[in-house]
Amino acid sequence: MIKIRKLIHDYLKHDEDGAVSEEIRALAGLDLDVKPGEFIVILGHNGCGKSTLAKHINALLFPSEGEVWVDGMNTVDGEKLWDIRQEAGMIFQNPDNQIIAQVVEEDVAFGPENIGVPGEKIRKRVEESLKSVGMLEYRRKSPGRLSGGQKQRVCIAGVIAMRPKCIIMDEPTAMLDPSGRVEVLKTARQLNREEGITVILITHYMEEAIEADRVIVMDKGKIALQGTPREVFSRVEEMKDLHLDVPQVSLLAWELRRRGLKIPADILTREELADALEKVIS
């Protein structure tokens, strides 16, 4: 679905005369393959290059070096630009700054209108998309009156109405409260499972990564760690060095091991912890 080879991205800072004064390397030779239907979570703290990576997949940014392929299309191929943006939809952090229209259904229609879908079909797609994010009853409402989580779901509907194969979500939950976070995450998982859409979720909340197929930890423009959530979260020490959280159970298990308790290193749930402790006692 997505193939990234040796991707490098430099941001150029210009001084007052327009000459390049500084080069900041946001991505430093990154390789990544995403299979169709995967649910990938990318973790990393601010400035690790994860947002830059997201914008490459949607062809909003282009490589300084290296290549990005989306569904067999190279992002630098100008003729394929709109196909790539239609196939790889994107959700941003602040829902207020993504909603264009003042009525929910008109906003969802914005994408399909841009790619020239006939009116009759747009209405059908809008209805289906709103239904799949559970917002159909709000179709005639003004987005201003919705909660943060609801607004973000409208944004997701706006992307699915374009029938993408893949959705990249760039910290969609960062500005939401806990209940809004749960709503958005549930929607993302459901789209992945029921409609087979590939999801790349960028976040810094580790609890959103626990049910992912694969977790990728980024640091300094590169992939620092990757694997299943269990593999990644059992490497407590490395995660701590990167200033990232791990689930409290994993952290507790790690602390107990450090104190000499003989329990497995890859504990992810409290049931597993209890089992392990019982084993030690008997």
Partner: peptide, 12 residues
């Protein structure tokens, strides 16, 4: 947890 594991828990 260490306290209630007692001597059984001390791997050493």
């Amino acid at each position: 947890i260490m306290a209630c594991m007692g001597p059984a828990g001390r791997g050493r």
